[in-house]
Simulated assay, not measured.
Amino acid sequence: MKADQPTLPKILVLASGSGTNLQALIESSRERDFPGQIVAVGCNRPKAFALERAAQANVETFMVNHEDFSSREEFDAALMAHILRHNPDLIVLAGFMRILTTDFVRAFRGRLINIHPSLLPRHTGLNTHQRALDAGDRIHGVSVHFVTEELDGGPVIAQAEVAVVPEDTAETLAEKVQAKEHLLYPIVVRWFCEGRIQLGGEHIMFDGQALNTPMRLPDN
């Protein structure tokens, strides 16, 4: 890199599964004007396909198997050590299926984001698509939020909606929501790397103004 070229913000992605959101981020990061660089991908499952996706993209990987630790605190301490080695500006949870400890969340406050398959605050936790159907929701979707100590309770940065139709099943709804995830997450990561969003106290600042309601991904 030439001396007059600024260093791009460093992004570290944590994943547990197939890594489809990771793939969307990798593809976006290859765009000429993308304002950040993915420096590493970490995983807690040794056979997760996310590791293969990262390797194919020549992104460094590390694995911290949660089954090797007797407590959540020990696992998080080991995970934190790997993360600090890369000194990321942003940590992106992309299907990372671990509940993080308070100490971990506080250590990375303001630079730790997550994507959740519902329109938060509705349907925190798991099985969101079936729960949306059971509740008779007409609109469902996905949220990107800052991670705080409250599970799925951090300030929401942006959301994207999908319509729920009578023919939908949990599987078809999951497919529709996932398509929105792949569009929304790279946009939010771009905003963060451009310095457009910050977590100030308990509120989000967007372009220097308090964000009172989540940004919305326009319908295509």
Score class of each variant (00 low, 15 high):
136 G>C: 08
187 I>P: 04
77 A>V: 11
168 D>P: 07
192 F>G: 05
172 T>L: 00
23 Q>D: 11
202 E>H: 14
121 P>G: 03
155 P>D: 08
213 T>S: 15
21 N>D: 06
201 G>V: 02
23 Q>I: 09
215 M>F: 12
8 L>C: 07
35 P>F: 00
200 G>M: 13
26 I>V: 12
46 P>Q: 10
212 N>Q: 15
153 G>K: 11
58 N>I: 02
54 A>C: 00
15 A>D: 00
105 V>P: 08
205 M>A: 13
123 H>P: 05
188 V>I: 13
45 R>C: 07
135 A>V: 03
153 G>E: 11
101 T>I: 03
62 F>H: 05
104 F>L: 10
92 V>L: 09
93 L>V: 05
168 D>T: 03
129 H>C: 07
141 G>N: 10
65 N>H: 11
200 G>E: 14
73 E>D: 14
43 C>N: 03
104 F>C: 05
50 A>F: 05
183 L>F: 04
137 D>W: 03
77 A>G: 05
193 C>A: 10
118 S>W: 01
50 A>C: 15
155 P>C: 05
184 L>F: 07
9 P>G: 07
72 R>F: 10
56 Q>G: 11
160 A>Y: 06
71 S>T: 15
44 N>Y: 04
29 S>L: 03
83 I>E: 08
78 A>N: 14
142 V>Y: 00
213 T>G: 05
107 A>W: 07
87 N>C: 12
66 H>K: 14
204 I>M: 05
182 H>C: 05
169 T>E: 04
14 L>C: 03
134 D>L: 04
68 D>L: 13
78 A>M: 09
13 V>F: 01
42 G>R: 02
219 D>S: 15
56 Q>H: 12
51 L>Q: 00
112 L>V: 07
141 G>T: 06
133 L>N: 01
89 D>P: 07
71 S>K: 09
196 R>H: 04
94 A>V: 07
161 E>D: 10
60 E>L: 11
110 G>V: 01
140 H>C: 08
140 H>W: 00
16 S>I: 09
120 L>W: 06
151 L>C: 04
74 E>N: 13
119 L>D: 06
110 G>T: 05
64 V>M: 01
157 I>N: 00
202 E>C: 06
91 I>Y: 00
163 A>H: 11
84 L>Y: 06
164 V>H: 04
132 A>N: 10
122 R>W: 08
207 D>K: 11
6 P>R: 10
180 K>A: 04
80 M>T: 14
116 H>G: 08
95 G>V: 04
131 R>I: 00
215 M>Y: 03
186 P>E: 01
49 F>N: 12
32 R>K: 15
208 G>T: 08
87 N>R: 14
191 W>M: 11
143 S>F: 07
128 T>P: 06
56 Q>R: 12
